[in-house]
Design a protein around this nucleic acid. Sequence first.
DNA 1: ATAGGGTTAG
Length: 694
Amino acid sequence: MTSSLSPPAITPSYDFNSPQLPFILHRLECCKSMEELKQIHACIIKARPLQTQLVLDKFLSCALSTLGSLDYAQSFFSQIRNPNLYAYNAVIRGFSRSKNPMQSLLFYGEMLEKGFCPDNFTIPFLLKACAELRTLREGEGIHSQSIKNGLVWDVYVRNTLMRMYAVCGVTGAAQKLFDESCHRDLVSWTTLIQGYVENGFPGQAIQVFLEMSMTKLKADGKTMVIVLSACSELGDLDLCRKIHSYIQDNKVYLDLFVENALVDMYLKCGDIDSACRLFNSMPKKNVVSWNSMILGLTQQGEFKEALLVFRSMQRDGAEPDDVTLVGVLNSCANLGVLELGKWVHAYVDRKGIRADGFIGNALVDMYAKCGSIDQAFGVFKNMQHRDVYSYTSMIAGLAMHGEGERALDLFSEMSRVGMKPDEVTFIGILTACSHVGLVEEGRQYFEDMSRVYKLKPQIEHYGCMVDLLGRAGFISEAEEFIRKMPIEPDAFVWGALLGACRIHGKVELGERIMKKLVEIEPEKDGTFVLMSNIYASANRWRDAVKVRKAMKERKMKKIPGCSLIELNGMVHEFRKGDKSHPKTKEIYKMLDEIMSRLRQEGYVAHTMSALLDVAEEEKEHALCHHSERLAIAFGLISTSPGTPLRIVKNLRVCSDCHSVTKFISKVFRREIIVRDRNRFHHFRGGSCSCKDFW
DNA sequence: ATAGGGTTAG
């Protein structure tokens, strides 16, 4: 009986004969607004025949998951007269899927107080909530309750227990449950495999999968997606092909998820051709398919290809998301193509996406690597949430631009706001010190790294220190530093010292280091180039030539110098002595003009860097056609006076090109920004931001 | 009525 003063009550029944029932269920399925839900609520109260378990369950889950209104669901529940276990389970499930899974556990407490016992449905809902909350304590409590109730033998209970343990990082407990079970289904195997992948044991995951393939069970798409992600992480191409054959042999249905995971796997394992073939054969693609290609190519260093895929994505009319944009920005950063990077920034603004988080960090990195350090700083300052990545990108950016002091200021700001630096932050800091010759500060930071911040220096940090000391002329200290290193010095560490030998003309030490380097990486040309540079600087031309000859005899492939310049969104690429550009004639005419203007201004070529034992005139000629000069000449004839030129070079700038560029910046009144392998050079009015310290 | 799905940086 319902009095007019108390709220109307709902009495659930198991009567499924009401003709209105399918209609109300359909309305609940489609319900998207609170208004609509309230109307349905009224209908249910008015019509007793609608008060069935199924309707109440659907009503609660709609209120909880679709509309997220926990209060409303609870007040609805309180109207149910004598709620049974089914009704409690419905609420617990609803809460476990909601934004506030804790409610699920609290509500379970109420249920126990009312004298109800959990059943094989209650436990999986609760465990899902525990997994969501990463609360091992509560999870273990439910584990012991399910043992007491004998529910632990239920395969659903067991699988959700395994999932809960895996999510909480206790793969051992998941494995134990798995080993002890007498009935394992595909979900049990998949859950165990996933647990290993998510906790950083992809090898173990594959082991478990191989074990499973010995049983009668056949994997489905969901299992394969996880197995494929384990393969990507391992980067083992042979294994990839085996797993791919398993999919074909067992006729696992290739849905979009599996196809995307396959594309991702092939790219991460470096088989770009297979990835492209698969991708092109896909009948339907979603944004993740495109993202897998773009990010995968970026990670493989195929930046131009990544941008080409982005263009076809746009032609295809697919809408990019933030992951796409991060990949595109990353490629822009690596290629140094500012125009496209700016376009992405404008796109982000237009879409009303905040330049924060991933996107913000990618923008900071892009602007810094494209030479617009001020823009990078602007984005950085506007970010609401700055994390270690943001600070590290900014610090590394400033370091690259030779703004050592500003980088160090930012580092102090980091500790002021309580942001803990990590290993990569210190690479930025040490590089900053190195580029501006702040030796004392560098030593201090290196020490603080382990003493104050409890971070273990890695080989890269030792490399930075050798560079810092050697570059500043503390050669014997650098040698001593290498001797005392707790880890075996690698090619980068020795390379840094060899670089110092070039700057400071240390021929004998250079020879010793060269011997070591040739042992460590005999195929690398950089060592030989540096050594012949060292000889040349000491005017030992004969030796310089000998090294060059040795290179030729070893049939070493030299990395060809290459410079990029971006004009109106088009990337122009020049190699040394390149004559393939449509404007070659004009470019070389401009080069001649540059050289004669420079000679009038008193320029003398640094022929020693030409490293060729040929007539002086020829040496100068060879230098003239270094790729960056072609790019600069092309920039000069293609832009209006005063436009800054931005060049990206794959190798270090040679000292002759460095002084030529200084001259050009003065004579032609152009700001020229060159990014070389190591850092940025801002040329303006005849001098360079690196203050010739590079 | 219940459990397992791919891509995100310095």
